[in-house]
């Protein structure tokens, strides 16, 4: 499912395991809470490798295959560590119509990273998203929590420079 050999793994610290266990405990008796649990765990460890999935499986008493099924279904969950900064280029209709794909290709070339993956120095992860709901400001791009409007070759590198 993922080319783990080409991307360095990120260590999960004992503190992180502690947080993860707390999350599992909080939701243990609530039915249907798998997705919120995975979301919060991913916030802690940055990604959901098999070890984390196994921990959740034991804690919530849900088969590992079910958990893997959910992790692989939703695009928010990742088994590859994310970079320090996440770049999301919008390819929704309005952005596509205004040149979003050119922006995506440009970032791919400049940083040598594929969509859905992370740069080898773990600086950036690149994703294309379907629609950020900022269609009035197409083409749009999000880096971490910052949304940028009317992005093009003229300003895209300047924007990314500030994210070390």
């Amino acid at each position: 499912m993922s080319e783990l050999k080409s991307v360095p793994k990120k260590k999960i610290t004992p503190e992180m395991w502690g947080e993860i266990d707390k999350i599992i405990n909080r939701y243990k008796d609530k039915p249907g809470s798998l997705i919120p649990v995975l979301e919060e765990c991913q916030n802690v460890s940055g990604y959901l490798p098999m070890e984390v999935q196994e921990r959740v499986s034991r804690g919530l008493n849900i088969p590992g295959s079910t958990i893997y099924g959910v992790v692989s279904f939703y695009s928010f969950f990742t088994m590859i560590p994310k970079g320090r900064h996440i770049i999301k280029v919008c390819l929704g209709t309005a952005c596509y119509v205004r040149g979003g794909k050119a922006n995506l290709d440009y970032v791919k070339d400049e940083f040598e990273v594929e969509v859905g993956s992370t740069t080898t120095d773990l600086r950036f992860s690149l994703d294309s998203v379907r629609c950020l709901g900022a269609c009035g400001m197409a083409p749009a791009m999000v880096v971490d929590k910052d949304t940028y409007a009317q992005v093009s070759r003229a300003n895209i590198m300047e924007i990314l420079e500030s994210y070390k």
């Binding site: 390819l91 929704g92 209709t93 309005a94 629609c131 709901g133 900022a134 269609c135």
Partner: peptide
């Protein structure tokens, strides 16, 4: 609201 091009609900 998942339709690309829709931002009414948001």
């Amino acid at each position: 609201e998942g339709d690309p091009g829709a931002f009414m609900d948001r």
